[in-house]
Amino acid sequence: MSMKFSAIALGVALSFGAGVASAAEPADWSKVAAKKITVFYPGVSPIEWITKGSDHGGARLLKKGETCVGCHEEELADMGQKMASGSKIEPTPIAGKAPAIPVNVQAAHDGENLYLRFNWKEPKASGAAKMDADNQVKVAVMLEGNKVERADQSGCWETCHGDARTMPGADDKKTKYVKGGDLASGKFYDLIQWRSGKGEAHDGYVADKRVMDGGKGLVKAEGKKDGDTWTVVFTRKLAGGGEGDIALATGKTYNFGFAVHDDHAKGRFHQVSMGYTLGIDAKADIVAAKQ
């Protein structure tokens, strides 16, 4: 293994407490069902824009209970292209920004740990200035326990607001948040993240603000680049056990979404998924079956 590959491509596994030795992801991921999910560039489309009928025609359907992905799944790449090019809701387009990335998503569990695997081909770099010079890629996953209003329709968009940092004219210190978010009542998103620079991982949550650490559910996060293909695997205790950790149980489903910060991006300049469901031995968009 070259020093270059080690430095920029291989994420070092990080341990968050006991139990790492017993964690064993599937030996052959090719035997685990994969769902191709397109993450796309969202431009300036906070939840306030999504729910405003005069701006977003789908607001009426959202009020009737329709899901965002139900309306848009077949056009995500086209949507990303419009926003990345600046032709729609993007005042500061980045020339050459990848409008969309198809990602293969897989899930499994062993009765103790949940394993989430993301695999995609790296798009061509934009050549723009590096917003996050330390991390070529970041991957973030959010899980929600069916307590945040509309999370089953809009996915992670309930954490995306027009007054949060990197939005036009917003406070650079204000993070993502859930309106009325509260850990005690369960109104929050469980957040885990992997960063490519040093293989760094975070286990936090988004409630009234985003907190990057404090959880105890994440056992390890690993990533690597093989040629032009990235693979990132999260190992997460089903039971959780820390601040902002959702306890996952067999037979249950949870709201699920993820984001890829490609090409040294930060803040809102990422590619994001619509909202999906994750089932632990339960029917869902992505099923984590016991291995």
Rank of each mutant, 00 (worst) to 15 (best):
K173Y: 07
M131T: 00
K173D: 12
G227R: 08
V232D: 02
C160I: 14
D132E: 13
W194D: 02
D208L: 05
L143M: 13
I246W: 14
V178T: 13
S185C: 03
D171L: 04
K198G: 04
C156L: 15
G223M: 06
S196V: 06
T175G: 11
K224F: 10
R165M: 14
T229Y: 05
E144P: 07
A207H: 04
F188A: 00
G241I: 00
E243Y: 06
V148A: 06
G244D: 05
Y177G: 02
D213E: 14
A184Y: 15
T253F: 04
L218E: 02
G244Y: 04
G240E: 03
A129K: 14
G241D: 06
V219K: 13
D245A: 03
S185M: 01
K187W: 08
M167H: 12
G181L: 07
R210I: 00
K187A: 08
D245N: 13
D226N: 12
G145W: 12
A249F: 08
G169Y: 10
K138M: 15
V211C: 03
V232W: 07
D226G: 02
N135D: 10
A128Y: 10
A128D: 11
D172P: 13
D171W: 05
K216F: 08
W194Y: 08
G197R: 06
G181N: 07
M142Q: 09
R210S: 03
A133M: 07
A201E: 07
G169H: 10
D163A: 12
M131F: 15
P168E: 12
Y254G: 01
A221G: 14
K225V: 11
G217P: 06
K173E: 15
V211K: 06
D228I: 05
D182R: 04
V232T: 08
D213Q: 11
F188V: 01
K138C: 13
Y189K: 05
K187S: 03
G223Y: 14
R150D: 12
W194T: 00
A125D: 09
Q136D: 07
V211T: 11
V232Y: 02
A133C: 01
A184H: 10
S154P: 00
G197T: 01
G180D: 15
F188K: 00
E144H: 01
T166M: 11
G240R: 07
I192V: 12
T253Y: 09
A201N: 09
M167I: 02
A207V: 05
L238C: 05
D226T: 14
D213M: 11
V137Y: 15
D182W: 09
S185I: 03
D163G: 10
E149P: 08
G169S: 10
D190G: 01
K130S: 02
V232K: 05
M212Q: 11
G199T: 00
E149F: 03
D134L: 13
C160Q: 15
Q193M: 15
A125V: 02
H202S: 09
T231L: 01
T231F: 06
K179H: 03
V178R: 11
R236A: 00
D163P: 09
F188N: 01
K216C: 07
K176G: 10
